[in-house]
Simulated assay, not measured.
Amino acid sequence: MPAPHNSFKHAIANGELQIGCWMGLADPYIAEISAGAGFDWLLIDGEHAPNDLRSIVAQLQVLAARDSHAVVRPPIGETWIIKQLLDAGAQTLLVPMVESAAQAQDLVDAVTYPPHGVRGVGSALARASDFSGIGDYLTTARNEICLLAQVENQKGMSELDRILEVDGIDGVFIGPSDLAADMGFIGQAGAAEVQAAVLGAMEKIVASGKAAGILTLDKDLQNDCREIGATFIATEIDVTLFARNMRSASNEARQNLQGE
């Protein structure tokens, strides 16, 4: 029996649009609600959300029963944490702050078993192999792992062409917020200079044959990226969606009952 089929990986490789949502509330109950909403993929954030390995595992377990594909972002692209996340059952990783081809190659090595990589062989203990229930896991796992590099500063952008040459990187995701800050426009991801840089990067990624992705709540930018050929686009964040609607509900109730 081979490793489970990664529908997300194959969809973006075929140019099929995958619409996603960021999950930062770090709770399996929220993940379950989100998974029933109809998004193609959901990002479990370990970089800017209060997630640890156990909370990530809990959310992976919930999402496994639904159609939304789980993408996990580790806090950093280190081999030790990548190993843990893969063994926990994550099949798609979005690694932040990739700044060079050498770093991208290290990530490829980290998701690949020896002799071609350095991933530790511990599948007998792992949820990923269904606790040794998947007999061919070791020989088939790499084919179903999707590795996405997040480029989000000027150093990474200057190295983008070389990062795109690294075999084993399935897609590149552009992070507008960190890029805006690094360009001197902190908190202004919508600045014309930032958007021009983002769209220019999208064009390079698509031209390279790799999948291009982004998280943005800006509908115009979503459409522009899609027109260029971006295939994995996150359009919402659970934290801001919840906060926005809670504030709106409170204001509407106050206006209704107090006339304010």
Rank of each mutant, 00 (worst) to 15 (best):
H5W: 12
S7M: 08
F8M: 05
K9I: 05
K9F: 10
K9P: 13
A11V: 03
G15I: 01
L17G: 06
C21V: 14
G24K: 07
Y29H: 14
I30A: 15
A31L: 07
A31F: 05
E32L: 13
I33D: 04
F39H: 08
E47R: 10
A49D: 07
A49M: 12
A49E: 05
P50C: 09
P50M: 06
A58K: 12
V62L: 11
A65S: 14
P75R: 06
I76P: 08
G77N: 04
T79L: 12
Q84D: 09
L85V: 04
D87H: 14
A88G: 14
A90N: 04
L93P: 13
E99F: 04
A102N: 05
A102H: 05
L107P: 11
G122H: 07
R127C: 13
R127N: 12
A128N: 05
N143C: 09
N153C: 11
Q154K: 15
M157E: 02
S158Q: 12
V172A: 02
I174F: 02
G175I: 00
A181M: 09
A181N: 10
G184C: 09
G187Q: 03
Q188H: 15
Q188R: 15
G190H: 15
A192R: 08
E193Y: 12
A197N: 06
L199I: 07
I214M: 08
L215N: 05
L215C: 07
E227A: 15
A230G: 10
F232V: 00
A234N: 01
A234I: 00
E236N: 14
E236M: 14
I237N: 14
I237W: 06
T240D: 07
F242I: 13
A243Q: 11
G259V: 01
